[in-house]
Amino acid sequence: MTEPNDKSRRGFLGAAAVGAAGLGVAAIAPGLHLIEVSQASAPGKGASSKVRWGMLIDTTKCASDCNACVKACNSENGISEVLKDPRQASQWIRKIDLKDAKSGITHSLPMMCQHCEHPPCVDVCPTHASMKRADGIVLVDRHTCIGCRYCMLACPYKARSFVHMTLTEQNPEVPRGQGCVESCTFCVHRVDKGQIPACVEACANAEHNAMLFGDLNDPNSAIAQRIAEVKTTQVRADLKLNVGVRYQGI
């Protein structure tokens, strides 16, 4: 298994050191991790609490037969393992087809970790492995996850997968591991480099432009302006988790 020594990882730990939830993370292996934290605390690195990353999905533009976001996610994050039982395979993002039972109207949309402001997965995680960065991105520290799967029970969106087998081909920027739980990271390793998540890019390349990524806190951002203009929905808004992923058209 590869040790995470990439920039995103450092950014992750830098943020962890800032956020109260992450204090525990920094203390696991003081020698190794504290060095990483000190490097990461350089100006401009690490997550800022001024930012709240979010996504807006326009389901009217999302095509039922398109899977570009899912494919892009899998290749970006090195999700290539094949399991005999497909129910055991990791799916960070999936396409859901909806049909209104009464009107018969159909929708298609991608579903992934909703990066909740009040994430139940973080509340229930016994080891602080599930954590929320200052910029709202919810991650699993795969070095402290004990694989109890309690977060899977708590997540209302079925957003988490448990790694059921030994992994061989990994993207060094995206540490994954057998026996740990994982979910969409909003491509944190790309976001920390100023890029957008791979799924959003792929959706645009496929000329659907159904996904918009940006800072919900910045009133001038495209996403904040769209949310101010059009009617958007939070899935299971009744739970009041104030999710970071919003849907339009359902």
Binding site: Q91, I96, D97, L98, D100, M111, K158, V235, I250
Partner: peptide
């Protein structure tokens, strides 16, 4: 789990 009340749901993830 009932994520979309009143809707029939299908997906590759067995929703």
């Amino acid at each position: 789990m009932d994520m979309f009340p009143g809707m029939q749901v299908t997906s590759s993830f067995f929703d």
